[in-house]
Amino acid sequence: MLNIADTLHDWCREDRSFALATVIHVTGSAPLPPGTALAVDAAGNVVGSISGGCVEGAVYELCQQVLADGGTPARARFGYSDDDAFAVGLTCGGEIDVLVQCVDRADRSHLAKALDAVVHSRPAAVAQVVDGPEEFLGRTLSLLGDSSTYDGTLGGEREDRAVAAQSRALLRAGRTGRIEVGGDADTCPDRLSVLVHTYATRPRMLVFGAVDFAAALSRAGHFLGYRVTVCDARPVFATPTRFPHADEVIVDWPHRYLADTAVDTRTAICVLTHDAKFDIPLLRLALSLPVGYVGAMGSRRTHDHRLGALRELGVSEDELARLCSPIGLDLGAHTPEETAVSITAEIIAHAHQGTGLPLSRGTGPIHRPAPGALSSAARTAA
Rank of each mutant, 00 (worst) to 15 (best):
R368Q: 14
A19G: 09
A246E: 15
R361Y: 07
V26T: 14
G364K: 05
H9L: 01
G364S: 05
T229E: 12
S360H: 15
D232E: 14
I24Q: 08
R108T: 00
S148R: 08
A268F: 15
R108W: 04
A370H: 12
D304F: 02
V66W: 06
I24R: 05
R122Y: 07
V98L: 01
F18Y: 00
A114T: 09
D15H: 08
H245Q: 12
D318T: 15
M297P: 05
D10S: 00
E248I: 13
L32Y: 05
L115W: 11
G314T: 10
V207L: 03
A37M: 04
G362W: 09
G53I: 11
C188E: 11
V230I: 07
L217Y: 02
Y60A: 00
R284C: 01
R168P: 06
V271T: 06
T241W: 11
T267L: 11
G89R: 07
L154N: 03
H255A: 14
K113Q: 13
H303R: 15
T339W: 00
G156C: 06
V126Q: 07
T267I: 13
A185S: 12
G79I: 09
S218K: 11
S299M: 06
P365A: 07
D160I: 03
P73V: 01
M297H: 03
L258N: 14
R256S: 08
E248V: 14
G182A: 09
A373T: 12
P235C: 01
G156W: 08
